[in-house]
Nucleic acid binder design. Structure first.
Lengths: 122, 122
DNA sequence: AATTAATACCTAAGTTTTTTATGCATAAGA
DNA sequence: TCTTATGCATAAAAAACTTAGGTATTAATT
């Protein structure tokens, strides 16, 4: 009747993943053309070899928000008598993806500056 | 009497910096031995050429938390009749810094996997 | 001389994002 | 038959940050 509760490892135990979920979703859709939520959780787990597990409690609200903002389009399909909600990027979503990936690059560059501060200071 | 309100640019307009403030603080103290809060905001602005501005509303509570966790020690000094609270890493803080920088490296590596997914997938 | 900007600390309300903990339903496997 | 996997969802709580104040001293500008 009741589901067994077992949490594995959310967001790699690291707070750094906070704020990057949107970027991850957009990049996944940029690669795969169309995906459904559950598929994204599995794909991320696979790509990162289990290091990064996005939780459904974070994912679904995020998808709904992106849809409401006009960045994603949804298409519901029934496969094996089970519903799947396929998401894909809109025109606006494509632009936002480019911008988010730029931000990620900038973020990484900035944080690497902190890692090797000697290079940037006198 | 009243302070002019003028916000410049918080956290580089990017949500990605959420969750990285602690890492930034620890790394700054790892480099500089001891620093005070206001000095940190200026240092970060300088190092990132204005791209990243940490707000005091985020910084001070973060410093208090790190102190409460035993990662930082405080020493109050009066300079020019103005108070400064100098923070430095404790033994525990040094270890946490190593661990946080490891996490940052892992995070960057993982996110770069998303940027160049062809390399990691068949 | 008076106002503003800079230095230096602080906090509290509100927002956003994520975690945690559920809920429902079907299919597959042990 | 019971559990795991698939697939969606939400709601309360926690966490982190933004926004918007506040106090006080010193330096710079008007």
């Amino acid at each position: 009747m009741h589901k067994k509760i077992m949490y594995v490892c959310n967001m790699a135990n690291s707070k750094l993943y906070k704020g990057s979920l949107t970027t991850i979703i957009l990049k996944l859709l940029n690669e795969s053309e169309k995906m459904y939520g559950y598929e994204m959780t599995q794909k991320v787990k696979q790509i990162t070899k289990g290091e990064l597990n996005i939780t459904e409690g974070a994912l679904y609200p995020a998808l709904h928000k992106l849809e409401a903002e006009g960045l994603l389009d949804v298409e519901v399909k029934k496969v094996d008598n089970r519903l799947r909600k396929y998401y894909k990027l809109t025109e606006k979503g494509n632009k936002e993806t480019v911008s988010k990936l730029e931000e990620l690059k900038d973020y990484i560059k900035t944080m690497e500056t902190f890692m090797n501060p000697k290079l940037s200071l006198e």
